[in-house]
Design a protein around this nucleic acid. Structure first.
Length: 570
DNA sequence: GCCGTTTTCGGCCCGACTGTTTTCAGTCG
């Protein structure tokens, strides 16, 4: 069992306890331990062996024992016991946004509902609305949330799919005779969510690869299996397609299975116009002679194009740009010099200390980090005086550090309902960096939300608009606002827009990045880390930026600190 | 269940928002 699986078991324990009316603090203890483990870089098995597991904050003797039991037999007694008390389907009901333990419990005890389907029926026929403290509006909202929930089922967030795909690729790459193995599909294009995994393997003899696939870790069923291709399903529910090809045509196959479909059609049409034929088996001339296939570069070259990065392959103008030699020189993770949105334990529910954040940033080679804790409108947020004191503490810590990163005193302030900020101007003006974000009244009407953001952008006290759309992938739709108006307001004030790299936000979107670039408004790629380990999430933000055609020059935190300061000045 | 200690029990984040109510319960972050 890996950390993710262990975390899932603890999270399930938390959900079940909550549904069986357990102590709320106990529930939280399990949930916090689950979150900690899910993002912890070292395998729990290793910590357990070293005897240092209980050093982690939030892991005590009981949970340590539970983890040991999980590693030994996949479960622990308390989990088994509570599983027997609550219908299994009720856990899924909790996944619906707006449905918490109380609602789920009331639906179960009051109406015998134990599934999402049952809940939906009860929303429709009015049974749910008849329960105490329920009503028509509530039922309507839950029904809508169920639709959203269904919409996201089947697609997995990139950060969940990526390690799974990488593990499968490693597994197949080890097979004797395999020359190359790679994950293709939307995962390779770094789309924010992934529907299934497409693995392409180059080997002269396919049989050993297929045999190895059938014994791949986490594979629960094989739904189709022929001599060179197979389809299976993983424990997570994700479908995996494997295709084995001759090494001579690996490039053509990789190109074909990477897509997108629209991009493939565009390239194939281009080949046809030149009298050529393109398929996953290579590029052929009219007489059927293979002209290219070993690498993607060969394939593109044979149709008169430079290699196009997978993130751009969406038939959104990349062929035309390639033809004219105008492909963007896409930003890379190594280009980032700093992170401008990081939380610490000083406020909010973040977990790490200033030192831990600085240590992690250093390990990642970052030259600067802006500490941007929440302000007074958030639970535990800092008020004017506390923020000023916090800034002083950050600067003191910065002065004491040797060898980087530099620590910038910042804040993530709230954009209030009327578009004003929740911290006094003179306090904000004493900071190095101000991120302004909407955290409340996310469903304001389009004009109202646009006006709030425009006012914040024009305030003269803000450097970055944080997670501008407020979406959360699979659970919360983006707020309704006019991005173009916000961009237009940001530009003269030198306010940058954030690509929030939290894997379930990725906000701005790729398309919004492209719009910002077209209007000449810079972007910053920020982790919004609530735990030092989450600084690594910056890579997800980089991929969004790449999908949005952004180059190094479009991203402000690729600048050295002094140049960044100059660009952010008002 | 964890943690810290006034060191083995008592506290553990709390405010905004929504929809239900007419003062508040549930959910979320």
């Amino acid at each position: 069992m890996e950390n993710t699986d262990l975390a899932q078991a603890l999270a399930e324990m938390a959900d079940l306890l909550e549904l069986s009316g357990g102590n709320a603090f106990k529930v939280r203890a399990y949930r916090q331990a689950a979150e900690l483990i899910d993002t912890h870089p070292v395998p729990v098995a290793q910590l357990l062996a070293a005897g240092t597991l209980e050093d982690l904050p939030g892991i005590g003797a009981h949970i340590r024992q539970h983890l040991a039991d999980l590693l030994a037999h996949g479960s622990f007694p308390e989990l088994d016991a509570v599983r027997g008390q609550v219908p299994e389907g009720l856990l899924e009901v909790l996944r619906v946004e707006g449905v918490g333990p109380k609602t789920a419990l009331a639906a179960w005890k009051g109406l015998g509902i134990t599934t999402v389907d049952g809940l939906e029926a009860a929303c429709r026929d009015g049974a749910l609305a008849g329960l105490p403290r329920m009503g028509a509006a509530k039922a309507r909202n839950i029904q809508k949330a169920i639709e959203r929930y269904r919409g996201r089922r089947g697609r997995v967030l990139l950060h969940r799919a990526l390690p799974v795909a990488e593990a499968l690729v490693r597994h197949l790459a080890k097979v004797k005779g395999v020359e190359q193995a790679e994950a293709a599909g939307s995962l390779r294009r770094r789309k924010e969510t992934v529907g299934d995994l497409d693995l392409v393997v180059a080997a002269k003899d396919a049989a050993p690869v297929m045999a190895a696939f059938r014994t791949a870790p986490d594979l629960v069923s094989v739904e189709a299996s022929g001599p060179t291709r197979a389809t299976g399903r993983l424990r997570s529910g994700l479908q995996v397609d494997v295709r084995v090809v001759e090494p001579d045509v690996f490039g053509a196959a990789l190109h074909y299975f990477t897509g997108s479909k629209a991009h493939n059609i565009a390239v194939r049409t281009r080949a046809m116009k030149a009298g050529l034929k393109l398929s996953e088996y290579g590029l052929f001339d009219a007489r059927g002679k293979r002209l290219a296939g070993r690498t993607e570069e060969d394939v593109y070259r044979a149709v008169g194009l430079p290699w196009i990065p997978p993130e751009l392959r969406e038939a959104q103008g990349e062929l035309e740009a390639a033809e004219r030699g105008r492909l963007p020189d896409l930003v890379e993770l190594d280009d980032l010099r700093g992170d401008l949105h990081v939380h610490t334990r000083a406020s909010s529910d973040a977990k790490s200390t200033l030192d831990e954040v600085a240590g992690e940033a250093r390990a990642l080679g970052l030259a600067y980090v802006a500490i941007t804790d929440h302000t007074r409108s958030r639970p535990l947020g800092l008020d004017d005086a506390a923020l000023a004191a916090h800034a002083k503490a950050i600067r003191a810590a910065d002065a004491k550090r040797h060898g980087g990163p530099r620590l910038l005193a910042g804040a993530e302030v709230d954009i209030l309902g009327d578009g004003s900020l929740d911290i006094a101007d003179e306090v904000l003006d004493g900071l190095d960096l101000v991120v302004a974000s909407v955290h409340q009244r996310l469903n304001d009407a389009r004009e109202v939300m646009t006006a709030r953001m425009v006012k914040a952008a024009r305030s003269g006290h803000v450097h970055v608009l944080g997670h501008p759309s407020n979406r959360q992938l699979g659970t919360r739709d983006a707020s309704d606002f006019d991005l173009e108006q916000v961009i237009a307001a940001a530009k003269p004030k030198h306010v940058a827009l954030e690509v929030n790299a939290q894997p379930d936000r990725l906000d701005l979107t790729d398309q919004a990045c492209r719009l910002a670039k077209a209007e000449g408004v810079p972007v910053v790629i920020s982790s919004d880390a609530h735990h030092a380990g989450q600084l690594e999430n910056l890579r997800y933000g980089v991929w969004v930026a790449r999908r949005g055609w952004l180059e190094k020059k479009d991203v402000l935190n690729t600048l050295p600190l002094e140049k960044l300061r100059a660009r952010l000045a008002h």
